[in-house]
Design a protein around this nucleic acid. Structure first.
Lengths: 245, 245
DNA sequence: TCGGCTGTGCGTACAGTGTTCGCAACGAAG
DNA sequence: CTTCGTTGCGAACACTGTACGCACAGCCGA
């Protein structure tokens, strides 16, 4: 818990009674802090991360972290850039731009669902995510869309990734509440369905097709995959129309 | 600040020294609380809202609010539903479905920018926003897309509103940081441009077209309008392809 | 007119938060 | 050996959301 010295109810200021600084644990470092923060965020959600708990998991005091990180917000930015490295964007010279963009979009979604706090933090900050990994992600995207022949690649990118962000954010939020319930996704849906049906009863157009109910209660993850892919195809179709032929 | 009784450093338990309860202020009510919460959220942002400050603005103590609202999270849900009433969705029998959907999308965006905390709260909760106004918003959308002839209206809705949410969220976050800077949007951009240019210098494909820079520093709001409309057209084009003719 | 009941306000308190400050201990350099 | 810059951290501050229990107001039946 502590790293030595005069603690543990030993107020005698004696050099001899002093514990040695433990060196078996690797020293506190920015990298280690960020890595552990990401682990905690993934495991327990965004509101479970506190500087004190994070310090404890690193066998350090809370305030020690401030030697390596200016503020908690900065730590979150670093965490975002850390996981941004996981997003894979195919090289610009890919033969099929649609396949390449689809791959990038799905990679983003996968990352966002693996770290369900990602979209939340991204949405809170507005800009400034100019970390190296996030920058290179943007750069690779720009290269991809430019090579595809879009005259205004930034517009196309913004369109696709607004959709991807919106969808991923909604999915991540959903998965978070499912996780908090302690149930499996299918079980959670099954338990919620009656209430949903009742709520939709007064609203004629909100009825859920039977096939959808069926799939939602048996293979919810697959259904989400399908939905995401559907919307992505829609957006890509719309973009394809704007590609000078 | 307080509503009477033995306070203000008057520990003498005398009935005579007691102030009367003030009745000139309207009584605390759920509606008043939610209304004031929305006002505070709009004015000072999401992290500036605390139960104590909210209570103070209502001439009440912080804990008094809990007589009308179970928890702060519930208050946020109520706030979301409150502003959801501002979103306008045209009736289902509109002659031009594209125009109608565009109107709904722009109304959502306008509302989200007027209350920049909206998308944040929506993204944090995952579901459960089953308040009456949000429900009727969903219902009206469903009616609109059904009338337009979409065989799977929920898919189409999800696609459009993922885009709208993603875009609005990004814009809201941007406007929030601009507001925090205390500058105008154009001024903020002008001040940031050199840093952005420098950051993009190493990344060949991230160069910003000169025309865009020009417009961003003169009419940033109009540029955002244009960008939003562009992406929306893309999505609607993609959807139109799936409309059985 | 008199209870008593119910609903409402809120002072106090608790456990937690992010962050500042100053001190103590260390490794390296002179 | 002394000095110096770096690192860890205990204590403290100003907050946060919220549970608890008391004090009062208005009302309803007697």
């Amino acid at each position: 818990m502590n790293r030595g010295r005069t603690t543990d109810k030993n107020p005698i200021p004696s050099v001899w009674a002093r514990e040695q600084r433990r060196t078996d644990q690797p020293a506190l470092s920015r990298e280690a802090i960020v890595r552990e923060a990401v682990a905690m965020l993934d495991a327990d959600g965004i509101e479970a991360l506190s500087m004190r708990k994070l310090g404890a998991r690193l066998n350090a005091g809370a305030t020690s972290l401030y030697r390596h990180v200016a503020t908690k917000d900065e730590l979150m930015e670093l965490a975002v850039d850390e996981v941004a490295a996981e997003i894979h964007v195919p090289p610009a010279d890919s033969p099929d731009w649609r396949a390449a963009v689809t791959e990038a979009a799905e990679s983003f979604r996968t990352t966002a669902l693996r770290h369900p706090w990602l979209t939340l933090v991204l949405g809170q900050a507005g800009l400034a995510y100019l970390g190296p990994n996030y920058m290179s992600f943007s750069e690779r995207l720009a290269a991809l869309f430019t090579a595809a022949g879009f005259p205004e690649p930034s517009r196309a990118i913004e369109t696709v990734f607004s959709y991807v962000m919106g969808m991923s954010n909604a999915e991540a939020a959903w998965l978070t509440t499912v996780a908090r319930s302690g149930e499996t996704e299918a079980g959670f849906i099954a338990r919620l369905m009656p209430a949903a049906q009742r709520a939709a009863a007064d609203h004629t157009h909100l009825a859920i097709p039977h096939a959808e109910v069926e799939e939602a209660t048996t293979e919810p993850a697959a259904l989400r995959d399908t939905k995401f892919a559907y919307g992505l195809e829609v957006v890509l179709d719309g973009l394809a129309l704007r590609l000078p032929k």
